[in-house]
Design a protein around this nucleic acid. Structure first.
Lengths: 330, 330
DNA sequence: CTGAAAGCGCTTACAG
DNA sequence: CTGAAAGCGCTTACAG
């Protein structure tokens, strides 16, 4: 006979307390007397009680669920951040619904609606929401919206990231200091990549360098594009001495193709990446990249969520910075 | 003034029908008269109604949420499958909670509890659950449990995958036919990798080949291990002519290191991978690998979920097969 | 094809 | 520190 699964009542009856007290014990153990808590713990054990969070969500209007909206996870530069975030949140018993917004974000609006329907405690965005109506919708949804990686002037709600323009500028400074003369940029067609490229070029010209050449590539960027980007160098009037790639994937592919063509990296051609994925440090030569601290972002996300739960104020823009990691490739 | 967000009632009142009818329209539009449906649609539009799925879940005992438990996503061989699954499920308005079970699956039990508390419609496992108590717990939870990638004799509930042993055997046959003589295996310390290695060795010996050499490496496997694995070849009594790697990441790292050492791949040393990640086709040389059709697995997951919703029977073991993809590296 | 009403299993303000 | 009770917003069996 299939006996009904235990509810809060059942645990309460067994422990000789009211359902309210069991609920309190589960959510704020410190407000329940120690002896009572012990009895409840035992009753939970004996009954094999598993809480029904759907009921909890309905009653408390808190789902302990957050939605992370990302373009993809196959070869994503955000994976480290997402992973760190899921880990960090798990310690607070918060789960992450992963939603894929796809190429050119075409699934963004339906996934936002789904997140709202699930009454998630927060929506984490890794991409940029450029549509004004959607931005407005998110603003008025009465929900925490965290934009990560970027650091827009006017966040929807809270932004945790860094200035992509500054990252581009910093890379220009770094390469110039290393003595490179003719940079070539491989730029994924995304707002942030463009911003980094913009920063790079502005700084490079400002420091008296010649106008860098550039190649724009489709997103999502991947290893294969690096190979193609290397071949495209042949079309340039003059060979660059360093290629600044929009992602570590591209950098890795470009290095592989360059080496296959007999080029020595970095002696004959230097290369830089972006994102500091694990492979950047593992590659041969190791890849000079820009590190974004995913774990730091994750911790800040936690802090914002806790502040919101507690009802305290948080900054609208949280700068976690970036670091150029000098390695062998440039 | 903060006006209360619209509920089902509000839509119903506006459309001049009962809440029950609106609910039916939302969940099974075909049972509602067309004219009524049109009025409801308009009322939803006008009120800006967003359903509360927590309430829906509580009432219907169906969450439209499934939990995917994976070891990690940073450099995971499952990412393609996960991505395909999320995409596929989104079309049925089912969301995926991604839970990370971590190294040696140490977070498996708490994440299973979390999934049960959320009343997910199914739990998808990519790893192997070896603990008997946990297996039993999942069996009696009255929930759909789908084990993917593997194809155990006795699934917890439903398994969608392929025989890793057969994949190993097939690779042995393939390499033997290509004329290789001295294979060396790089084997991640995971049950499935071991099984593939076992299949490879059995078949290789059966066909009269010499005992392959082997190196065991820690999981999760990654690019850097491939480089180290190449260097470890120096310790072997005799140089292998082909290295069979437990993942494409390892294969790629090994190729990079071999090339850096001046070896020509595949002329002097052939290499195979596993998983057929995108990079396998993009690498130079392109990497011979074993393809696992993530989209196929995703479709089968959908089919199982639909069957369960409909109450119809499904097979306990669904074999989606695998394919050796012959490329340049071996 | 549609409605009235019960019920899903929690949380929490209020009172003690 | 604890309990009684109302309420969260849906779904669905039943009746028509």
């Amino acid at each position: 006979m299939a006996t009904r699964p235990p509810r809060l009542d059942d645990v309460a009856a067994r422990a000789g307390v009211s359902a309210a007290t069991v609920s309190r014990y589960l959510n704020s153990p410190e407000v329940v007397a120690a002896a009572t808590g012990a009895r409840i713990r035992q009753a939970i054990e004996e009954t094999g009680y598993v809480p029904n969070m759907a009921a909890g969500t309905l009653a408390s209007n808190r789902s302990r669920l957050i939605a992370a909206l990302v373009p993809d996870i196959a070869q994503s530069i955000f994976n480290d951040t997402i992973e760190a975030m899921i880990d960090e949140l798990a310690s607070d018993r918060i789960s992450v619904v992963l939603a894929l917004t796809g190429a050119d974000n075409h699934r963004l609006v339906p996934e936002i609606n789904m997140a709202l329907a699930r009454r998630v405690d927060a929506i984490i965005l890794t991409g940029i929401v450029s549509d004004d109506e959607t931005r407005q919708r998110l603003r008025t949804a009465g929900i925490t919206v965290i934009e990560t990686w970027g650091l827009p002037e006017d966040p929807i709600d809270v932004a945790i990231g860094f200035s992509h323009r500054a990252a581009g500028e910093e890379m220009a400074r770094f390469l110039r200091q290393r003595g490179y003369r003719r940079p070539h940029l491989v730029v994924p067609r995304s707002t942030r990549s463009e911003r980094r490229a913009g920063g790079f070029i502005a700084r490079w010209l400002h420091d008296g360098g010649p106008e860098p050449t550039r190649l724009d590539v489709n997103v999502p960027s991947h290893f294969g594009q690096g190979r193609l980007s290397y071949r495209a160098l042949a079309d340039l009037p003059e060979r660059p001495d360093v290629v600044v790639c929009g992602s570590d994937w591209i950098a890795q592919g470009l290095i592989v193709e360059a080496q296959a063509a007999g080029m020595r990296v970095p002696d004959q051609l230097a290369v830089t990446g972006f994102g500091n994925l694990r492979l950047a440090g593992d590659m041969r030569p190791t890849i000079t990249s820009v590190d974004v601290d995913g774990a730091h972002i994750a911790r800040e996300v936690m802090r914002v969520l806790r502040a919101r739960t507690a009802g305290t104020e948080v900054e609208k823009r949280i700068d976690v910075g970036f670091r150029v990691i000098a390695r062998e490739s440039a």
